[in-house]
Amino acid sequence: MEKPFSEVKMKHSTENTDNVLQEFNKNITLDYAWLISYVIFIGVLGIVGNSIAAAYYVKKMDKNVNVILLIVISLNDLISSLVNPVTTVYDFVNSVTYSSIIGCPAIYFAAHVLVINSLLLLTVIGVDRFLQIYLVASKLKFQKSHVVRMLACIFSGSLLIALRDIWIVKPVPVSVHAGQNLTVTGHHCMHSKEDYLKPVIYAFHIIDLVTVIGLSVALTCMYIMIRRKIDRTHKAVVAFSNPIDTRAVEDEVECTSSAAHDTDEAANTCSSAKLSIKDETDSIVKPSILFKWGAHTSEATNDHTHSHKMLEVERRITKMLFVMTGSSLLCFVPYFVVSLSLEYDHESSGWIYLAHRSFLLNSSLNPYVIGYFNSEFRRFVYDIFCRFCFKAVRG
């Protein structure tokens, strides 16, 4: 029995539509081959770098709160470097044929969760360092016993924030022009274009932007305060370790005491000055004020060479964490520019595509920042490379 003419025509029309959409996908893939190569390259860098960073911190004997958090952020960024480039390339290859109602919001949701995890972990690391160094006497310091609860709060918060993507991200119908008189409808995975959702999506972008700016300001202030505390401590340790400076201070106090010996008030003033100098110097050279994570030895109090080295290490660590945080936050600038001021859809230029996915860099930069500031990490990488080359030569 022959099929009705209407059914044959509909099947033919469907085949033509599919062919047009596939041809459009093919052209997009070819036109943006450079962008796809860039995404894959960033993903490979992230996988290699975060794998080595996670292995390096896992091997460290002194696993304090900061080290544990750096392990977690390396593993989170490793997963992000695996997942986000794959979903991004899939999105390119299926630019106008992404019709999955579940898969479309799921990839946005997964990317959002991983990126938020990274930002929140960097924030907690900055706060922990501030408590360890600037507020040395504070009882608010994070302990190892708090890590599990902190991570549970971070992951739960990320999931709750990203849940909105299930609502606002959809396979949106788009028009694909295949000729002068032929226009077919495809589906592109992006934020919904429904009128009632547009102000909601815009409001979410504003909230995200304000949050990122707020975190940037707060963390910058904290790292500036940490740096100043380290510099002041370094100057004080240098002064205390110099016998000439110490004698000069003592002589000055003695002179003040002798000149004012006739009055009880002046004598008390002189005594207070001596006590003030002694207390300040003692507080500066205490090992806890030298910001050394983990156990401290009593010898460190009098070992000024060791103190100088510790302070220099802390200065580099502070710079490293500040650059890690700053670079991660800067990765979102192009994304917010596109989201708030430009129209993004399946016909956007490659540069808009690139800006809209600028957050991909967030998961790949940290290991290389660590390598730049941490000589021990560089030696660890060098040892791995040498062992690999040695095995390759022997094999």
Score class of each variant (00 low, 15 high):
60 K>L: 12
42 I>T: 14
63 K>G: 03
204 F>R: 08
126 G>Q: 01
318 T>W: 08
21 L>R: 06
365 L>F: 15
156 S>L: 12
379 R>G: 01
100 S>C: 09
177 H>K: 13
214 G>R: 04
149 R>L: 10
380 F>S: 01
244 I>L: 15
167 W>Q: 09
273 A>R: 15
203 A>Y: 09
18 D>S: 14
380 F>W: 03
352 I>F: 08
181 N>P: 03
294 G>Q: 07
31 D>F: 06
330 L>T: 06
365 L>W: 13
125 I>Q: 05
95 S>L: 07
316 R>G: 00
364 S>L: 04
138 S>V: 03
386 C>M: 10
239 A>R: 09
163 L>N: 01
193 K>E: 07
76 N>M: 01
289 I>E: 03
38 Y>D: 04
188 H>E: 03
334 P>Q: 03
310 M>A: 12
201 I>E: 03
148 V>C: 13
10 M>V: 11
16 N>Y: 08
289 I>C: 01
25 N>C: 08
140 L>V: 02
148 V>W: 11
263 T>V: 12
217 V>L: 11
238 V>I: 14
22 Q>P: 00
157 G>K: 07
63 K>P: 05
289 I>A: 02
6 S>P: 00
267 A>T: 08
314 E>T: 09
384 I>D: 08
132 Q>L: 09
242 N>L: 05
149 R>E: 01
122 L>M: 11
113 V>N: 00
135 L>T: 10
268 N>I: 09
14 T>R: 13
240 F>G: 00
262 D>N: 10
163 L>H: 02
195 D>W: 06
62 D>C: 09
384 I>T: 11
92 F>R: 06
159 L>N: 04
115 V>A: 10
182 L>H: 01
260 A>C: 06
